[in-house]
């Protein structure tokens, strides 16, 4: 009876997928620890909304749109893997990479205009958190861009390792989900 239990659950799942999900679980805890700290620090003292009002909602909304769209192109690349469509895989991966770079470019522009306006990472607890949280997120975007770039190059020679597009996609969507929460936490409240 027990033997059937083991064989039923065994290797139907791709090993990489299980691995990536465990990795994402630990990542949820990293960003979770940071967001948790931000929430309690923000609720503990007043005046944070006034400082958050210096951030540009239009630019951040544009950036959110860019990242949401990149998630769609990433999942379309995964769909193309399913059809064995090598050109589609490469096209959509390239779109994702370019959108990721666009996000980083817009973020850099945002940073520079905030710094020019005198809002430094050390200015106040709000800016401590703002730069640390968005900075850590931007590093994750950068890591995703590099991963996607390596898949884009690899896909030129064929789709032998294309299941990795799904794994990279899981990570990329996770980074998107983090931004889905950072956007209202930092900009909208």
């Amino acid at each position: 009876m027990e033997a059937s239990v083991a064989t039923r659950t065994a290797p139907q799942i791709l090993p990489g997928k299980v691995g990536v999900w465990w990795f994402l679980a630990s990542e949820i805890m990293v960003f979770g620890g940071l967001i948790s700290s931000y929430i309690v620090a923000r609720l503990a003292s007043s005046g944070w909304s006034a400082e958050a009002a210096h951030l540009s909602v239009p630019i951040a909304s544009l950036n959110t749109l860019v990242l949401l769209t990149s998630s769609m192109t990433m999942v379309l690349a995964f769909g193309a893997v399913g059809r064995g469509d090598r050109r589609g895989v490469r096209t959509f991966l390239l779109c994702t990479i370019l959108l990721g770079l666009t996000f980083l470019g817009i973020k850099a522009y945002e940073y520079s205009s905030e710094l020019r306006a005198g809002f430094m990472p050390v200015t106040s607890p709000f800016w401590n958190f703002y730069y640390t949280m968005t900075g850590l997120h931007a590093l994750h975007v950068l890591a995703g861009v590099i991963t996607n770039l390596s898949l884009f190059v690899a896909a030129r020679r064929g789709l032998r390792n294309a299941h990795r597009v799904e794994l990279a996609g899981l990570y990329w969507h996770f980074v998107d989900v983090v931004w889905i929460f950072l956007f209202p936490l930092l900009y909208l409240t």
Binding site: M29, F31, G32
Partner: peptide, 13 residues
């Protein structure tokens, strides 16, 4: 895996 994240966040801070 599930406990080290907040400390990583703390270490970054």
């Amino acid at each position: 895996l599930l406990s080290v994240g907040p400390l990583i966040a703390g270490a970054i801070m």
